[in-house]
Amino acid sequence: METLDPRIKRLSLETSTEVEKTNSHLITYEVFHQEKRGKHVTHVGIVHASNPEMALVMAKEVFGRRGKTTNLWVVKTSDVYTFSSEDEEMFETTPEKTFRDPAYYKVRDRIEKFQNKNKV
């Protein structure tokens, strides 16, 4: 096969080689990244690996080759439990519960009203 790539030339490939179909695949690990000490560890993606040790070794270069990293966690995808997407409605009314919200407590108006009344 003609090629301009010296690496490929060294392989002396045939263009016609048939490829066997692959049906097996490694399992996936979900990868979590901590940028700095004190920061949350956040999900960044997945790697294919055969065990947790390999998953970590792979995760370092897939997700840690730029910027800062203090640690990476890996968890087998099948070990992660999640809500089903229909259950999202369970969270729907939470933002309405304003009594949990600091902005809900507005004392300034009342204080001013009180002070104005006292002045009179």
Binding site: R7, L26, V47, H48, M58, K60, E61, V62, R65
Partner: peptide, 18 residues
């Protein structure tokens, strides 16, 4: 570095290249 782009699996391609 000759392995970059033709490694045995994508993750390992990245690791070897780094």
């Amino acid at each position: 570095s000759e392995w970059t782009g033709i490694g045995p699996m994508l993750e390992e391609d990245l690791a070897f290249s780094s």
